[in-house]
């Protein structure tokens, strides 16, 4: 994996993500025709504005920002969940990207843990054989034992979290993207997750974390990106960016209380 280092894996150029405000409401045929006849201007919301970003393999990137700043949107653009309205994204295609935007994406409640392993594996892009090779270690990491053959809807939230994390990380993706999923799970689980993430990071997996936990991001990343109002405000050394971000938070507190 060492020859992967410093290869450009994502390049975003002038990326904009915008959508029409009425998309959030349900629009009926009558309303749409009415709006068109009146030539009403649809209000646009800019989730991301003019994003220029380069991500190389082996980097450990943290993304911070206030709620609604566009952090998750940026992550979703990288995962190809959201297609930008304009701008371009270049991405190496043969990498397995494991997005943990939510634990247990793609899980079918009526199917067993084992069956869900297969489905989630297919979703990430693995073949049946690749998944079968990993199945034992996934079951071991998740500590589910015989429960692996029970329908997932009977799992506790902790079991669910363990299985989901096991699937996403055991398969050793080249890129791991995590969006604040560590609310769930007990301390043992957190420690297990952390140690596995450390191993992946040492092996050269590129990681991209979105979190509100600045201390976590400072220790885990070698590059921090501050996103606010859909734009990248700062991008660089974690300490410097964190400092600037904290200062801006303090300024805001002064404004609010002052």
């Amino acid at each position: 994996m060492s020859d992967m280092k410093n290869n450009l894996i994502f390049e975003l150029t002038n990326v904009w993500v915008e959508f029409e405000k009425h998309a959030i409401q349900r629009r009926s045929l009558r309303e749409t025709i009415g709006a068109k006849l009146k030539s009403a201007k649809t209000e646009k919301i800019h989730a991301l504005k003019n994003i220029n970003l380069k991500i190389s393999s082996g980097e450990h990137i943290g993304i911070i920002g206030r709620n609604g700043a566009g952090k998750s949107t940026l992550l979703k653009v990288l995962c190809k969940v959201i297609i930008p309205t304009s701008g371009s994204i270049h991405q190496i295609n043969n990498y397995h990207i494991a997005p943990l935007l939510e634990l247990g994406i793609g899980f079918q409640p009526d199917l067993s843990g084992r069956e869900n392993c297969y489905l989630a594996g297919y979703l990430i892009g693995y073949t049946k054989r690749e998944i079968e090779n990993k199945l034992e270690s996934i079951i071991q990491f998740s500590e589910l034992g015989d429960f692996i053959d029970e329908p997932v809807k009977n799992y506790s939230s902790g079991m669910f979290a363990r299985l989901a994390f096991a699937i996403a990380t055991d398969i050793e993706p080249e890129v791991l993207m995590i969006d604040e999923v560590f609310g769930v799970g007990d301390e043992f689980f957190m420690r297990k997750c952390n140690s596995r993430m450390q191993k992946l990071m040492e092996k050269g997996t590129t990681t991209i974390f979105v979190s509100h936990n600045l201390d976590f991001l400072i220790t885990q990343s070698n590059r921090l990106i501050w996103v606010d109002n859909g734009e990248i405000i700062l991008d660089g050394n974690p300490f410097e960016v964190a400092e600037a971000y904290r200062n801006s938070e303090n300024n805001l507190k002064l404004v609010v209380t002052g």
Partner: peptide
């Protein structure tokens, strides 16, 4: 349930 969470 999937379109909003993962590329497909």
């Amino acid at each position: 349930w999937l379109i909003k969470k993962m590329y497909v």
